[in-house]
């Protein structure tokens, strides 16, 4: 079989088989819609609430992206500080690990209570808090593990620290950075939805999901999950595309 056709056809068949099994399972058990949704229930659910999906999907999307953007800025800065200064690394690392260990669901009520009514801010804040950690760690590791010879090559010519950072340290860290960004993009998405679901305020796909839950509207809940998966995939592949552009050199040529 042609390689390209196989790369396309095999996954499609797998998805179809999965959906068919799901449909069969619901049909075979005779589950009603307030107990479980079948794939055939999803298109009507999307159709019924389409304007809501659009507006709330947009809210979820932009808040995730803004949170992620802040996480990239802050995480990179923190990573640089820890990567360049041994003292700062020793000081910040335990704090960072401790902060990361706190399940973010428990932070939601605190944040919601602290900034009552500022839903956009709250949501962005949570997306940010949950996603900056891998970026900070990867940048700091990337910088601190730079082989001394790389530094020496430029330093022996009288290059400044800033030049060494721009010409060598930064580009060399990019593959690790993008690896972390792929994790962070998924995490930021979780953060946004945590805030939207745990502290509902009528905005975002999380709120739509919550209203489905209140009504035991399984088709709506599953439709929201599909929409979330779709947005997550889109964001992920945007990161992959950026990685190809900026760190494509790190990819080994096949063979």
């Amino acid at each position: 079989m042609n390689k390209h056709i196989r790369a396309f056809v095999v996954p499609v068949i797998a998805v179809v088989v999965f959906l068919a099994f799901w449909e069969w399972l619901v049909w075979f058990n005779g589950w009603p819609r307030f107990k479980m949704a079948a794939p055939s229930d999803l298109p009507p659910a999307f159709e019924r609430h389409w304007p809501l999906f659009l507006s709330m999907g947009w809210q979820t999307l932009w808040r995730t992206v803004v949170g992620l953007f802040l996480a990239v800025l802050f995480g990179t800065l923190l990573g640089m500080i820890m990567g360049f200064s041994r003292t700062m690394r020793d000081a910040l690392y335990p704090l960072l690990v401790g902060f990361n260990a706190i399940p973010k669901a428990t932070v939601v009520p605190i944040v919601a209570l602290m900034f009552v009514g500022q839903h956009d801010f709250n949501t962005v804040l949570l997306a940010f808090m949950i996603s900056f950690f891998p970026i900070a760690v990867s940048v700091s590791i990337g910088l601190s593990t730079l082989e001394p010879e790389y530094r020496d090559i430029l330093r022996s010519l009288g290059a400044s620290q800033a030049t060494i950072f721009w010409k060598i340290a930064l580009p060399k860290t990019l593959p690790e950075f993008f690896g972390a960004l792929k994790v962070a993009v998924t995490l930021a998405f979780i953060g946004t939805n945590l805030m939207e679901i745990v502290s509902p305020h009528g905005r975002g796909l999380g709120a739509l999901f919550d209203s489905g839950r209140t009504n035991s509207d399984f088709p709506l809940m599953f439709a929201v999950l599909i929409a979330l998966a779709f947005l997550g995939i889109v964001l992920y592949y945007i990161v992959v595309a950026l990685e190809k552009i900026f760190a494509g050199w790190a990819e080994r040529a096949p063979g």
Partner: peptide, 16 residues
């Protein structure tokens, strides 16, 4: 000093 050139056992070429 910029009048010095260096080469190491590790060629440290920039992959990008």
């Amino acid at each position: 000093r910029s009048t010095v050139g260096m080469a190491f056992q590790n060629p440290v070429l920039l992959e990008w």
